[in-house]
Amino acid sequence: MSRLIDNPKRYSTLRLNLMEGDTLEAQEALYDSGICYYQDIVQEMKKFHTNEYPTNDLMQYFSLPYDKKREKIIKQKILSAYPTVQVEGNSLYAVLELNMVKDLTLFELHDFTEQIAYQYKYGWGEALEYHNFKTQNSDHITVRLYHSDIKFATGMVFEQWMRKSRARNRRKHTPER
């Protein structure tokens, strides 16, 4: 089993861009400096919708056309999947908050993750990428859930990432004797 039900969240890396105010063209990639927009992004993602994507529950768009039986099983186990963001250290991560009633097998987790990546690239996430957020301080930003080096993690794996990251940061900031 995937043990996703122990921490029903799917974490992934994301990218932010600061947009030029007048032209709304990408001005600057926001790596570790994007956390100041955390609250703005959370609020925008909660209310974001289009005619094609009237809800931010990604399970409404979940589809496995090559395996309808597995699609049905996954939909019975995961009732909803809402994207948001989370701050960890100096970085923002995309988080898919899941309402689950039963754990996924590893094969189902793989299919679920592949389909969510597809939605991030071509579906709801793509529509979000073309939506410019106007922040509280009047900056304009975009959020890209899908990018070429995207990484997904269960809660357990994400915690391992964070422990390793904290250990690296401690070593960098610990003076040598």
Rank of each mutant, 00 (worst) to 15 (best):
N7F: 12
E97Q: 14
N7V: 13
F107K: 13
L92E: 04
Q60K: 15
I35A: 04
L64S: 08
T50D: 07
P54W: 04
L16E: 01
Q86V: 09
E71T: 09
K68H: 14
E88G: 07
L64F: 03
I73S: 14
I78D: 05
E44V: 07
M45K: 02
I35Q: 02
T50N: 09
A94Y: 01
I5F: 03
M45S: 02
H49E: 08
T55L: 01
Q39M: 07
V95N: 03
I74M: 06
K69S: 13
D103K: 03
K69I: 13
I41A: 03
G89C: 01
P65N: 11
G89K: 06
S91Y: 12
S12T: 07
V101E: 13
P8D: 08
A81V: 05
Y31T: 14
F62T: 08
E71R: 11
H49L: 04
R15F: 00
K69L: 12
N7T: 14
V85R: 03
N17E: 09
T84G: 02
I5P: 03
A29V: 12
D6W: 03
N90Y: 06
I41W: 00
V95K: 02
T23L: 04
K47N: 10
I78Y: 01
T13L: 04
F107M: 10
D103A: 00
I41Y: 00
I78G: 06
L104Y: 05
E20Y: 03
K46E: 10
